[in-house]
Simulated assay, not measured.
Amino acid sequence: MQKNGPVALIFHSLVVIFMLAPMVVVCLVAFTPENTLTMPWNGLSLRWFEAVFQHNDFMTSFGNSLKLAFLAATISTLLAVPSALAITRYDFAGRDALNALFLSPLIIPHLVLGVAFLRLFSLMGMSGSFFWLVATHAIIITPYALRLVLASLSSMDRNAENAARTLGAGEWTVFKRITLPLLLPGVSGGWLLAFINSFDELTMSIFVTSPSTVTLPVRMYMYASESIDPMMAAVSALMILVATVAMIILDRLFGLDRILVGKG
């Protein structure tokens, strides 16, 4: 074991470097003063970040993505909590089918979902609606919230709930005062993962967005199809910053170790 220790440490370090290197390169390129995608060897510059904030289309799309991700993540979490409670604690006909239905977006390609939703909305005459864009995002990110809530439920000690019932507490009181607080790390982690996946979704969004509801990833794709300059790196760096800040806040509030292992 001692001989394998240094080898394992080197291997894990190489894996971490391999995963982080692309993001580090993108963030460095965002500070280049040049007009091409180059490393900032001649000094750092904020010109491309200023260009992003002065680009009205990017700022509008950024606002669309934030609003969309917040609403979709909230809806998916509201669906995930009662669904996880039903799947974990009750035995009823169709329980496995319900679980498979909620998790199915993980295995269906988003390209297929995008084409299907586009056709469905066209038939219903509802193409371009922000409401339906939120609904489609909520569908594809619900599995992320559901899996963390399921993990929290499977590891949660139910003695406190049983004690409360013994003392005369009703089911709603038990859920509000005991179950939900114990599930809060898993619920919060699921909401965060759902938010990040919605904010970063591109493949399906291309098919269901309209000119007034273009999200930031779609806007980046449209911009990259016309020209490539360091402003794309600046936008990418800002997206990385949003995800990093969200993770730091969640870690400060609940602790990522508790969330990732599914413990309340």
Rank of each mutant, 00 (worst) to 15 (best):
L120K: 09
V208I: 14
V187E: 12
Q2S: 09
W48F: 03
M23T: 10
H55F: 08
A194V: 02
L182V: 03
V214E: 13
M232I: 15
A138F: 03
S154F: 07
L184K: 14
F53T: 15
T32D: 04
A233D: 11
N64H: 14
S76K: 06
A151C: 01
L133F: 12
A21E: 06
S45A: 05
S65T: 14
S104F: 04
G189E: 10
R158I: 01
G255E: 05
E171V: 09
T209P: 04
N64R: 11
P105D: 11
F58G: 01
R177T: 02
L85D: 06
F70T: 15
L37Q: 03
M124L: 15
V15P: 02
L256Y: 06
G43V: 02
V29A: 08
I196L: 15
L120P: 07
L9Y: 05
L192W: 13
I75N: 05
T215W: 11
G190I: 08
F195A: 07
R95D: 06
I139K: 05
A160H: 00
T38Y: 01
V261S: 15
N159Y: 06
V242D: 11
R252C: 06
S104R: 06
S129R: 12
A100P: 00
R89D: 03
S227N: 06
A246H: 08
V214C: 05
F58R: 01
L113P: 09
G168T: 05
L9R: 12
A30F: 09
L78C: 12
L118V: 00
F175E: 12
M204C: 11
D91N: 13
S45H: 03
T213K: 09
W172M: 11
G125T: 05
A163H: 02
G186L: 03
I141A: 04
P22D: 10
F18N: 07
M220H: 11
W132Y: 15
L146V: 03
L106N: 01
M204L: 15
V112M: 08
S198G: 08
T173N: 10
V15A: 07
V134T: 13
V134R: 11
P143L: 00
K176G: 02
A224T: 12
R252M: 08
G262H: 10
I139E: 09
P109C: 01
T244S: 14
F130E: 12
V25C: 07
A233G: 10
L133G: 12
L71Q: 13
R177H: 02
F131Q: 11
S205P: 10
A116D: 06
L153E: 12
M1R: 06
A51G: 10
T166Y: 10
V112K: 04
G189P: 10
P217K: 12
P82K: 04
N197A: 05
M39E: 04
S13K: 00
P211E: 06
V24S: 08
T136G: 12
L28P: 09
D257K: 13
I87C: 07
